[in-house]
């Protein structure tokens, strides 16, 4: 499955990356799976996406939970809790 990843704020800075096109293996089915898959790349991914950190996720620009299923071609964004206003 192919996905477009986006990273914002402290995650973008920590990874030194704002976007990436990625092809994921078939066993990666949910947002939580994807996060684990990226953590397995080692640092800085393991550190920036560590399970101890509160990270929000959006699928096609809508906020979703960890258990949400991935869909082909989706834009998946990871970011810290929002602080606007």
């Amino acid at each position: 499955m192919k996905l477009e990843l986006r990273f914002f704020a402290s995650l973008r800075e920590g990874l030194g990356l704002s976007s990436e096109s990625i092809a994921i293996p078939s066993e990666v089915k949910s947002i939580a799976d994807l996060r684990r898959h990226l953590i397995q790349r080692g640092n800085p991914w393991a550190e920036v996406l560590a399970s101890s950190k509160v990270i929000r996720c959006a699928l096609n620009q809508e906020m979703v939970s960890d258990s949400t299923s991935l869909v082909e071609g989706a834009e998946i964004a990871f970011f810290p809790p929002v602080t606007g206003g």
Binding site: F8, A9, S10, A58, M63, A77, F79, P80, P81, V82, T83, G84, G85
Partner: peptide
Amino acid sequence: IMDYLKTAAPFWKK
């Protein structure tokens, strides 16, 4: 609107 913006709109301050 303001309360929801604070927690749901994707803005970040540095």
